[in-house]
């Protein structure tokens, strides 16, 4: 048991290490200086208070999209639709933020709740189809992503604006922005969303580990037949798991809509935050605490990458390569386990 825990901790660390090494090999082959590249990355992520603020701001939606993917994983589902659920959540949050004028203590929670509801509703469809018709959720959620993208763009153009490419800015009373947080981080775009993300992580942990419902959801994920035999309603639990996962994704969208951007604009493609959530969840071992750490890592990679072209001449895409390789290594953990057991045997 103890060595199993150790392995579970070692695999993500080794995966990151291997990813970073592979990244430096790519840099050497293409004629860049890896030390300069990674120094620029580190400086761009943590170099001064502005960069730290940006890193934490980027980490915020990553925590939530990671939680969304992980919650589904833990209940035996693969939610690739986090991206789409995030987009409709973003739309709903901005819509409520623009349409109403209310006191802050009602308006802000209402906007976040709307985002959670929209995300949950978007995830309800694949959940229901899985439970009722046994349709695989991976394909349905991928399709729902594109439907979300196109429908949201149409709503922005024709409902939220008059054929413009972006909505109006949300009212101050729905905003997550904070002058205090901005002032201590040298006017970065840091906002209060990080507190909500951390609370969400605690909620996910409590829900899955400490409640009867969470136990049921995990049981259905492990073995549908056994859970059914034990008297659990498998269909309802599948739908519920997707809905909760979608709600996390929707709130991730609210972070962008109410905090970072304060509006929503027509998107040519996906934000990527939802897909990165898969990487965050995998690396974080699908548990709430691990996700906070891996969200920090990915936030730092993404924000730090912006510094690389100007200081070291390395294209920002290097970071995408490193992230992809980290996913490969985590996914191929069979290889790492094999190596670890071999090393142990030789040690004896």
């Amino acid at each position: 048991m103890n060595s199993g825990r150790l392995t579970n901790f070692l695999i993500p660390l080794l995966a990151v290490l291997l990813g970073v090494i592979a990244g430096s090999i790519v840099m050497v082959i293409s004629g860049y200086d890896p030390i300069a590249g990674y120094s620029a990355l580190l400086y761009g992520a943590f170099g001064d208070s502005y960069y730290i603020g940006e890193t934490i701001r980027q980490m915020t939606p990553y925590i939530l999209s990671g939680l969304a993917v992980a919650f589904a994983f833990r209940t035996g589902l693969f939610n690739i639709g986090v991206e789409g659920q995030l987009i409709v959540g973003w739309l709903a949050a901005v819509w409520v933020g623009v349409a109403f004028e209310l006191p802050k203590f009602i308006h802000l929670p209402l906007a976040i709740l709307a985002a959670a509801l929209a995300g949950a509703l978007w995830a309800l469809i694949p959940g229901f189809l899985k439970a009722r018709f046994k349709v695989h959720e991976v394909i349905v959620t991928i399709m729902m992503n594109y439907i979300a993208l196109h429908v949201t763009n149409a709503i922005i153009r024709f409902v939220l604006s008059d054929k413009s490419y972006k909505s109006e800015e949300i009212h101050e009373s729905a905003s997550l922005r904070s002058e205090f947080l901005q002032s201590i981080t040298d006017y970065s775009t840091l906002h209060y969303g990080i507190i909500i993300a951390l609370i969400a992580a605690v909620i996910m942990w409590f829900l899955l580990e400490k409640t009867t419902k969470g136990y049921e959801l995990r049981a259905v994920g492990f073995n549908q037949h056994a859970s059914h035999y034990a008297g659990m309603n498998v269909s309802n639990n599948i739908v519920l798991a997707m809905v909760i996962s979608g709600a996390f994704a929707g709130v991730a969208g609210a972070m962008e809509g109410l905090g970072t951007f304060a509006n929503i604009s027509v998107k040519a493609g996906f934000t990527g935050v939802g897909f990165d959530g898969i990487a965050v969840a995998l690396l974080g071992g699908n548990n709430a605490f691990g996700i906070i750490l891996s969200a920090l890592l990915f936030g730092a990679l993404k924000v730090g990458a912006l510094e690389m072209p100007s200081s070291a001449g390395v294209p920002t895409e290097l970071v995408d390569i490193v992230i992809a390789l980290i996913i490969f290594f985590v996914a191929s953990s069979y290889l790492i386990r094999l190596l670890l057991t071999r090393v142990k045997k030789e040690g004896k």
Binding site: S30, P315, E317, I321, A324, L325, F328, A331, Y334
Partner: peptide, 21 residues
């Protein structure tokens, strides 16, 4: 024996990252 969906997602990330790089 990686999860095939996860590996496919990694392929997508890697392809766009590598080609733009």
């Amino acid at each position: 024996r990686a999860d095939q969906v996860v590996s496919g997602v990694a392929i997508n990330f890697l392809a766009i990252g590598l080609s733009l790089f």
